[in-house]
């Protein structure tokens, strides 16, 4: 057990703590870090509206992507959970399989589909529905679509596993007592699978808000999210301490989302135990 825990501590915990230390130093003249001056300037700078607005935009985009992923993923997971027993595993496997392929390639596929000379615009023009290509690539729409596409499998997985743990006799009792299918779903099934919804939602939100590849490739450089901002500070502006400050804020935000989910899950367990 020891080598594994040491590896994770040395190459994950220590480097992440280092980020919080770096945040309090100045950048060196030639990039890197000037270890001689302690400063709180980076934190003051991060509070600038310029950067705060990037955080708000990222949270908004991640929030929309999460909502859409839930709206697609919940009914899909529900359908899989209602399918014949022997089909459930293959169906779930089919939903997860795309996740195990290269993220860059899955994102690139949407450039092929969405670009002005791409398949979707080409087909719509060919059918005479539009005369000019729709601007569906290199904007917020494309970024949200890319995030939903890449992370919906997580939602299906999380919600399916909570549906599977659900005792079917609750829903049966509700129907026997005269509740409609809709009422049974809203009053019984949905609350009892809330922990799966929360787990899926937090996953999508956290992975979306810190994403770099999707806004970079599908946003076409016009759209900045926190991930791109951190990337630029490290590789373009070469201001590591400020990049570290932004990363520290992102970690804090992530912890907040995870804690909220853990509290919600704990409360749900307490209520239904």
């Amino acid at each position: 057990m020891a080598p594994g825990l040491i590896w994770l501590t040395a190459l994950m915990i220590v480097p992440c703590l280092l980020i919080f230390v770096l945040a309090f130093y100045e950048r060196g003249i030639y990039g890197g870090v000037d270890w001689s001056i302690l400063t709180s300037e980076n934190i003051r700078r991060a509070a600038d509206w310029l950067y705060v607005s990037v955080f708000i935009d990222s949270a908004r985009i991640a929030g929309i992507a999460t909502l859409i992923a839930l709206l697609i993923g919940y009914p899909a997971a529900f359908a899989i959970a209602r399918a014949p027993e022997r089909l459930q595993t293959p169906l779930l496997f089919m939903a997860i399989l795309p996740f195990w392929t290269n993220y860059l390639i899955r994102t690139y596929a949407w450039i092929v589909l969405l670009n002005p000379a791409g398949l979707i615009n080409g087909a719509l023009i060919h059918l005479g529905i539009i005369s000019e290509p729709l601007p569906i690539l290199y904007n917020e729409f494309a970024v949200i679509l890319g995030l939903v596409y890449n992370y919906t499998p997580f939602v299906v997985l999380a919600i399916y596993s909570s549906l599977q743990r659900l005792d079917p006799s609750y829903a049966e009792a509700s129907r026997d007592l005269g509740a409609s299918a809709f009422t049974t779903f809203v009053r019984i099934i949905l609350p009892l699978t809330a922990s799966g919804v929360a787990a899926g939602a937090v996953f999508v939100f956290v992975l979306s808000i810190g994403n770099f590849v999707t806004p970079d490739l599908l946003g076409g450089g016009k759209l900045q999210m926190i991930g791109n901002l951190i990337y630029d500070q490290f590789l373009t502006a070469r201001d590591w301490p400020f990049g570290a400050t932004l990363s520290g804020l992102l970690i804090a935000l992530m912890m907040l989302a995870l804690t909220a989910q853990a509290l919600a899950a704990g409360r749900a367990r307490g209520e239904h135990a």
């Binding site: 480097p15 992440c16 280092l18 992975l207 808000i209 810190g210 770099f212």
Partner: peptide
């Protein structure tokens, strides 16, 4: 605490782990 440590690598944004490791290796 140990479970959190084992779960963390799956949820930390790649870019954060990337810059953290770059800073660490450089240091």
């Amino acid at each position: 605490a140990r479970d959190a440590l084992l779960f963390a690598p799956m949820i930390i944004p790649d870019i954060v782990l990337a810059i953290a490791l770059l800073s660490f290796f450089t240091l």
